[in-house]
Amino acid sequence: MELRPLELRVISAKDIKDVNLFTKMDVYVVVSINGDHRTAQKTPVHKESGSNPNWNCTMKFTIDETAAHQNHHNLVFRLKSNRVFGDKEIGSVQVPIRELLDQENGNGKVDHQHLVEDELVL
């Protein structure tokens, strides 16, 4: 098992479903590897962001490179609305880590931004 760092930046979301009835949503994202809470990291809450939140938050993970190349690892993004009486899940997106690794130039670095646009699972 070869462990390696993976750094990503969670930038924004667009046109997400509004799960609040009376106020603008305060949205954050929890990112984990395969949904494992032990690897979970959270963006700051974007207050009153509504359906178009921005975070521009960098996260660092350690991954098993062999398992990632065999398509056994996914990054799971869970969008949530921060609410007084309990946070509400808006939806989630899964991105295979292999897709990110396939963008490398051979020296362990990605020369360009890898933009992930995916449909939110509700």
Rank of each mutant, 00 (worst) to 15 (best):
L75V: 03
P96E: 06
K109I: 09
P96C: 10
F85K: 02
V30R: 09
T39E: 01
N105Q: 11
M25Q: 14
D36P: 02
K14Y: 11
S81V: 00
K88A: 12
G108W: 08
Q113K: 13
E117M: 14
L79M: 13
P96Y: 07
L101V: 08
Q113Y: 08
P44M: 06
V31S: 05
N82C: 04
V27F: 00
P5C: 06
S51G: 11
S32P: 03
I90E: 02
N71F: 07
E99I: 06
K42A: 11
V116K: 09
N74F: 11
H37F: 12
D118G: 11
F85L: 11
E65Q: 08
K14M: 06
V30T: 15
M25L: 04
L115R: 13
G106F: 11
H69M: 15
R4L: 10
L6D: 01
L101I: 14
T62W: 10
V27M: 05
K24R: 14
M1I: 12
K109A: 13
K24T: 02
M25V: 03
C57S: 14
G35N: 04
G50W: 00
V110I: 15
N56I: 09
L101K: 07
A40I: 02
S32L: 09
A13Q: 00
G108Y: 05
G91I: 06
D26R: 05
S32C: 10
V84A: 13
Q41Y: 03
S32W: 08
Y28C: 09
F77I: 02
G108L: 07
P53L: 04
E89H: 01
F22H: 09
E99Q: 14
K47G: 03
Q94L: 03
R4E: 12
G108K: 06
V93M: 12
E119D: 09
S51P: 11
G86Q: 05
Q103A: 15
Q103I: 01
Q70D: 14
I97A: 04
G50M: 04
Q70F: 05
G35A: 04
T66G: 11
R38V: 09
N20L: 00
V29S: 02
A68L: 00
E89W: 01
V45R: 02
L3G: 05
L75I: 03
V76T: 15
G86D: 01
K88T: 15
K47E: 12
D64R: 10
E65I: 08
T43Q: 06
D87H: 07
L21M: 12
M25F: 00
S51M: 07
I16V: 14
V19H: 00
L79G: 01
L21N: 09
D36S: 04
V19E: 00
